[in-house]
Amino acid sequence: MGITEFITGAVLIIVFCYAITIYNGLIRLKNNVDKAFANIEVLLKQRHTELPQLVEVCKGYMTHEKELLLAITKARSLVQDAREEHNILRLGQAETEMRESLHQLFVSVEAYPELKANENFLALQARISVLEDLIADRRETFNESVRLNNTRIQQFPDLVIARSFNFIALEYLRFRAVGLLPVAIGSIHD
């Protein structure tokens, strides 16, 4: 074996190990996206269980807002379906609907002083507002993970490995973040 073969061999070892590092890095990025989505899911599930209680409390007072309450129930099930299907595009649309309906609800409450004074309602409103803000925060982390993944698979030399092993660009979670309540956020750390 001559010096040229030796150098070629050494360079090949580096290239091979580098390819493994890139592959593992892409797997890590994909897992980061999955983890970030799972972190949003936890909060969506929590809100899913809180919403019927909110609607139930409001029903007793808001006799003229049946359509609004129906819209919240509908948006709730749309979010649930999209979440279970892992359909990011639909989840974004459903989440926008949900936030707009909730925003409308909390604005309408102003016309119902008795409901506004109901402790149960106030507690639910505060909890849901906190959850909404945390969901918005975690969406940022999710989208950051997606951006890192999508950038990586377009960069050389990562794109060679990405194309060979079918790593694909992932969808961003987009929804309009409507401010619900200026509530002091206590953390929910799962």
């Binding site: 890095g25 970030a36 936890v42 945390l134 925060d137 975690r138 982390t141 993970s145 956020i185 953390s187």
Partner: peptide
């Protein structure tokens, strides 16, 4: 790569 690939979290909502 781990530094580049880890998204920045907010403390209040970090998992």
């Amino acid at each position: 790569r781990i530094m580049q690939d880890t998204p920045t979290s907010k403390i209040r909502s970090a998992s």
